[in-house]
């Protein structure tokens, strides 16, 4: 199997993989005198598996280690090394520098949507555009069907608590939980479940009045810590004046992006400073 085949297989299966490529540097193997070793390439996975070579075993070891770190952080960028993988500035004095581009692909972020309602289909659609792996959850078998949510990656007929017990541990700061049910039987355990995870975004649908009532019910269920309640984005979404399910989905997803980037979500015209931070 070629390195490209290995890379594309991992990408298609949505498994973590990093590709390290020498983009500038002196000849290491003598076959391209004065030039760059442009055949240097490593494919690194989250296990101990490494394929390919950058031309030096020690360089391979150090770059593979850094590639795994980039993979964990979900980052891509250029790193500098000496010909044998030296990374400390003292070791690099007087030696040539090899520039390696490490590109990492982590599995897509997850969005769990609780409640199989009209808004769910629109939100799932927009979330797919943004690259999320979307799971729709509802306890009502007649609503939580594949036919109603063909765009979702997964439709689960389940109550929130077992879902969080089973898979809550997989949620990270990149992921989102959107609770669209409006039904206290469902949204109280969904909120409690989400708060017990590391999930980066928790949005709960409902009017300001609904939210106030929900806070009372959450308090009855023992969810009353200010630092927990502070994580809830409710009413859900940005103030766009959204009306339709599709517009609401855009307002929710825009809020998720703004929360992640820490930006103000006002018109760029009204702000100053760099656009792409």
């Amino acid at each position: 199997m070629s390195l490209y085949d290995l890379l594309s297989q991992r990408l298609r299966a949505e498994l973590p993989v990093a590709l390290a490529t020498v983009i500038e540097g002196p000849a290491l193997d003598g076959t391209t005198p004065g030039g760059t070793v442009l055949n240097g390439r490593l494919v690194v996975t989250d296990s101990d598996e490494v394929s390919g070579t950058l031309g030096d075993p020690e360089l391979d070891r150090v770059v593979a280690r850094d590639a795994r770190a980039e993979l964990e952080a979900g980052r891509s960028g250029i790193r500098h090394y000496g010909p044998q993988g030296q990374t400390t500035p003292e070791d690099l004095v007087g030696s040539s520098t090899i520039r390696v581009f490490i590109e990492s692909w982590s599995p897509p972020p997850q969005m769990w949507i609780f409640g199989a309602v009209d808004f769910t289909a629109a939100l799932a659609k927009v979330a797919k555009v943004l690259g999320y792996r979307v799971t729709v959850c509802d306890a009502r078998e007649i609503f939580a069907t594949r036919r109603r949510f063909p765009m979702a990656d997964e439709v689960r007929v389940t109550w929130p608590s077992p879902m969080f017990a089973e898979r809550g541990g997989s949620l990270t700061s990149r992921d989102a939980v959107c609770i669209l049910t409006h039904d206290p039987k469902f949204d109280v355990p969904a909120i409690a479940g989400a708060l017990a995870t590391e999930v980066g975004y928790i949005g709960v649908m409902g009017s300001r009045k609904t939210h106030a009532k929900r806070l009372e019910r959450l308090a009855e269920a023992g969810v009353d810590q200010p630092q927990d309640l502070d994580r809830l984005m409710s009413p859900i979404g940005l103030d766009l004046g959204a009306r339709t399910p599709e517009e609401t989905a855009i307002s929710i997803c825009a809020e998720i992006i703004a929360r992640r980037t820490g930006r103000s979500a006002t018109s760029l015209r009204a702000t100053s400073g760099p656009i792409h931070a």
Binding site: S76, G77, I78, F101, E103, P274, I275, H276
Partner: peptide
């Protein structure tokens, strides 16, 4: 500076 796309 300001770039429209990310590395990768």
């Amino acid at each position: 500076g300001s770039g429209p796309r990310e590395p990768g």
